[in-house]
Simulated scan of single mutants.
Amino acid sequence: MQLDDVLADLSAENAELDLLVGGLPADGWATPTPAEGWTIAHQIAHLAWTDEASRLAATEPAEFQAELQKAMANPAGFVEDGAAELASLPPGELLTYWRETRGALPDALRSVPAGEKVLWFGPPMSPTSMATARIMETWAHGQDVADALGVQRKPTARLKHVAHLAVRTRNFAYLLNDRTPPAEEFRVELQGPDGETWSWGPEDAEQRVTGPALDFCLLATQRRHRDDLGVRAVGADAGAWLGIIQAFAGLPGKGRRPGQFAGSPDGRRADAGSPDGGRGPVG
Rank of each mutant, 00 (worst) to 15 (best):
S126I: 06
W198L: 15
R99C: 11
T180N: 13
P113Q: 03
W200K: 01
R257F: 14
M130N: 06
R224A: 11
L68A: 13
Q69W: 06
T39V: 00
P212M: 09
A236V: 09
V112H: 04
G122C: 05
T128M: 10
L105N: 02
A146Y: 04
S126V: 06
E63M: 14
T132L: 12
R158A: 03
K154I: 13
D228V: 00
G230I: 06
G259T: 05
S126N: 07
A240W: 07
F64D: 00
T138P: 03
E196T: 11
D9F: 15
P127G: 05
R268V: 11
A45P: 09
A26E: 10
D5A: 15
P25A: 09
Q69A: 15
L95D: 14
A140W: 01
P124I: 03
P32L: 04
D215W: 04
R168M: 14
E196V: 12
S88T: 11
P275Y: 08
V79M: 11
A146K: 06
F64P: 03
F261T: 15
F216Y: 11
G255I: 02
V162T: 07
K70P: 00
V231L: 04
L24P: 10
D227F: 14
V209D: 04
T132M: 12
L119Y: 09
A270V: 10
A87Y: 05
Q207A: 13
R232K: 14
L47C: 07
A35H: 11
H46K: 00
P182L: 02
G150C: 03
A233L: 01
Q207Y: 05
W139H: 02
L105G: 03
G239K: 05
L86Y: 09
A238M: 02
V282T: 08
H164L: 12
S129Y: 14
A73R: 14
I44W: 03
Q152A: 12
Q222W: 00
A236R: 09
G259W: 07
A148T: 03
W139E: 03
V118E: 01
T33N: 08
G277T: 00
A76W: 11
D194V: 13
P32G: 06
L219F: 10
A84S: 01
F172D: 15
M125C: 11
A140H: 01
